[in-house]
Design a protein around this nucleic acid. Structure first.
Length: 115
DNA sequence: AACGTGACTGCCC
DNA sequence: CGGGCAGCCACGT
């Protein structure tokens, strides 16, 4: 589907990550490790974070990407994690009292291909 | 080619 | 999921 018009190279890990992140349905979240595993790098979780940091793509709502704890790790790049939290809440995501996302309710797997 | 760095994860306590 | 240590991937210098 997107492969027919998406001229991305293997070296463009950045573009590849963006594709997966862009496929995350609203009200859902995923983890770096899940994405990395879907890309074929089960140990490349850090590389996924690097990709999002490398370029702020509007087509890739990085605010839907969190660490395995359901916590918004990109606070340093976003500026304020509260912005992401409120944004996710607007999509219908529930948060714990400690400010982390309820992964058990909103965790989405890229391999699932959809909601 | 090597070292250092970073939006991570897994294992251990 | 409280904190600490090591491993992995890709990039910049």
């Amino acid at each position: 589907m997107l492969d027919s018009k998406t001229p991305m190279a293997e070296t463009d890990y950045f573009n590849l990550v963006m594709e997966v992140v862009a496929r995350i349905p609203p009200g859902r979240v995923t983890t770096y490790g899940l994405i990395a595993r879907h890309l074929g790098r089960p140990r490349g979780a850090r590389t996924v974070g690097w990709a999002l940091n490398g370029g702020s793509a509007d087509g890739a709502p990085c605010h839907r990407v969190v660490n395995r704890l359901g916590e918004l790790s990109g606070r340093m790049s976003f500026g304020n994690q509260f912005v992401m939290e409120d944004l996710l809440r607007s999509e219908g995501v529930s948060f714990c009292e400690n400010g982390t996302i309820r992964m058990d309710l909103h965790l989405w797997d890229p391999s699932a291909g959809g909601p």
